[in-house]
Structure formats: structure tokens, C-alpha cells
């Protein structure tokens, strides 16, 4: 017998020999979702865009809806989302994802349609399209990734930039007098009649990521009910433009951003049977 075959990693097998051997078997408990394309992502180290891509793709895989899902990519760092998500996607003009999603969903009401947008895209140039899509109660999911700066164009001030926060276009810190206060988009959307589920989550810790994934899962499931728009704001980071390490950026989300943008559900469907297994009835 060739010896190589017996060279096993120590941690893999623990065999206590006797007349009967007890062996610990390892099972896979976590891996990259198959719906996420196996390529290097262009995002900076520690950027949560790729993390949120992964979460959405996990939900698509868990629900087994790859064949029925159409995503709309924005303009911004995540413009290449279609390179990483293994689903049919359309790349929208800057800010227009909600309108494009409307076009897709109206013609294919039984498909799952979501938009993936940043704060520059959704909260600045695209706020009009977003408000109207939510007000009409389009049965889509809007994933709003809020990292308080324009990432791709290298860190300019966004509508969600915190008061006093320094960016390349607010070098002395954002001034409320000059540029107003950050827009609380999720609260704004919750005011609209067509909004069905509005929540603000983050990805700053493993548990926060779990909560975000749960919210995404719920939102995808709600689409089948055809009761209105689901809007998930995710507080995210931009280590490169915040000039922080990824770890510092996660702390900044918890300690600073969450003060301006309180986390949690803002509008939840009235009748939820939370005890029902496998989703919402």
C-alpha cells in the first residue's frame, strides 16, 4: 500500500483504537454559495459590497430561485455586480435602477426582482425613481447599501455623509448649513404607502450579518405575496475612502453611523406569524 494514502491531517481523524474505532467525521457547515461566481472581486480589502453580494446570493441559493431572479446593478463601485452574481442582471443608468426594475417586474410579475444600489446612486440622483417605485408598491426588493460616501469616484460627499464627516468634497467636514443633514432614506421610504417591509441593518459583525441575511430572506419571500416594496438599507463601510482599516471601519459603523442611522425594522408587515416555519404566511 502506498504510504501517501495514509498521510492524513492530524485533526481530521481521531481514532481511539480498540475493538471498535470511534471516528469524528467532518461535515461542511459553510462554503461560498454556488450562485456567487468564483472569481476575484475587484473590491478593496474589507469592502462589504462583496459581503452583501454574497448574502444575496446565499439567499438566492437557499431559496433555489436562481432561475427566477433578475438583479439590477447600479452605477458606482458595485456596477460590476453582474460579474459576481450568477444570475441574469441588467445594469441601469445612474440612479435609475428602481425604474428599470419596474419595467422588468411589471412584465414578469412572477419573477424575483431586486435592485442593488449605493447611496450616491439611490439617495442622490435616483431618489425620485426610488420614491415613486416604492410609492407605487412595486413588488421588488431594493437593497440600499449606505456607506456615506461615493466610493467609485474616490470618496466625495454623499447625501448620507454624516454631519461633520470629512470627504474629498467636504474637506472641513460636512456642514449642515451648507449641504443639509444626512438623508435617512429608510425612514423616508417607510412613510410611503407602497412600502411593505423597511428595515435598516448592517454587516459590522457576524451576528449583524446574520440579521441582514434574515432580512434579505424575508424580503425575497415577501415578493411572492405581491403586497408592496421591500426596502433594506444596509449600513456598510468604505475603508479606502474613510481612510481606515477594515476593522476600524466596522467600529465606525457601530459607533458613529448607527447613531445617525438607527438600526432595526422601521416598517414591518402587520400580520406576521413569526412562529410559522419556513417563512411568513
Amino acid at each position: 500500500m502506498p504510504t501517501e494514502e495514509l498521510l492524513l491531517p492530524e485533526t481530521t481523524v481521531t481514532a481511539s483504537c480498540g475493538a471498535e474505532c470511534a471516528i469524528e467525521t467532518y461535515e461542511e457547515v459553510y462554503r461560498k454559495p454556488a450562485t456567487l461566481v468564483d472569481v476575484n472581486m475587484h473590491y478593496c480589502p474589507g469592502c462589504a459590497h462583496s459581503l452583501i453580494h454574497k448574502l444575496i446570493m446565499e439567499v438566492v441559493e437557499d431559496m433555489d430561485i436562481q432561475e427566477k431572479t433578475i438583479g439590477i446593478a447600479p452605477v458606482g463601485c458595485s456596477v460590476f455586480a453582474y460579474d459576481y452574481m450568477d444570475i441574469d442582471m441588467q445594469e441601469a443608468a445612474h440612479g435609475r435602477a428602481a425604474a428599470v426594475a419596474t419595467g422588468v417586474k411589471r412584465l414578469m410579475p412572477d419573477k424575483y426582482v431586486f435592485t442593488y444600489q449605493g447611496d450616491g446612486d439611490l439617495a442622490a440622483i435616483g431618489i425620485g425613481e426610488t420614491i415613486h417605485a416604492v410609492n407605487r408598491g412595486e413588488n421588488i426588493l431594493i437593497v440600499f447599501v449606505n456607506n456615506a460616501v461615493y466610493g467609485m469616484t474616490s470618496g466625495q460627499m454623499a447625501p448620507t455623509t454624516l454631519n461633520g464627516m470629512k470627504t474629498t468634497t467636504s474637506p472641513n467636514g460636512r456642514s449642515a448649513e451648507l449641504t443639509g443633514l444626512p438623508i435617512k432614506v429608510a425612514e423616508l421610504m417607510a412613510q410611503l404607502g407602497g412600502a411593505y417591509f423597511v428595515t435598516r441593518q448592517t454587516i459590522s459583525s457576524p451576528n449583524a450579518v446574520r440579521r441582514t441575511k434574515k432580512a434579505l430572506l424575508q424580503a425575497f419571500q415577501y415578493q411572492t405575496l405581491k403586497k408592496g416594496t421591500c426596502f433594506i438599507e444596509i449600513l456598510s463601510n468604505c475603508p479606502s475612502n474613510w481612510k481606515m482599516t477594515p476593522i476600524e471601519s466596522m467600529k465606525f459603523i457601530d459607533e458613529e453611523m448607527a447613531k445617525t442611522f438607527p438600526l432595526g425594522d422601521i416598517k414591518v408587515p402587520v400580520t406576521i406569524n413569526t412562529k410559522t416555519e419556513g417563512g411568513i404566511q
Binding site: K32, M41, S50
Partner: peptide, 26 residues
């Protein structure tokens, strides 16, 4: 699984022993 959950680039796979040991006859 915490490390894998927060990994932005999905580079970590996690394996775990089954909580109940299965006796195997060798």
C-alpha cells in the same frame, strides 16, 4: 462559522465534526 460569515470575499469554508460521534467499524 463567524469568520466565514463576515468574510467579504467568501474565501473561507468551514467544517465541523458531527456532534454525535458515529462509531465506525474499521
Amino acid at each position: 462559522v463567524n469568520c466565514a460569515i463576515i468574510c467579504p470575499d467568501a474565501v473561507i469554508s468551514v467544517f465541523r465534526t458531527h456532534p454525535k460521534k458515529k462509531p465506525v467499524d474499521i
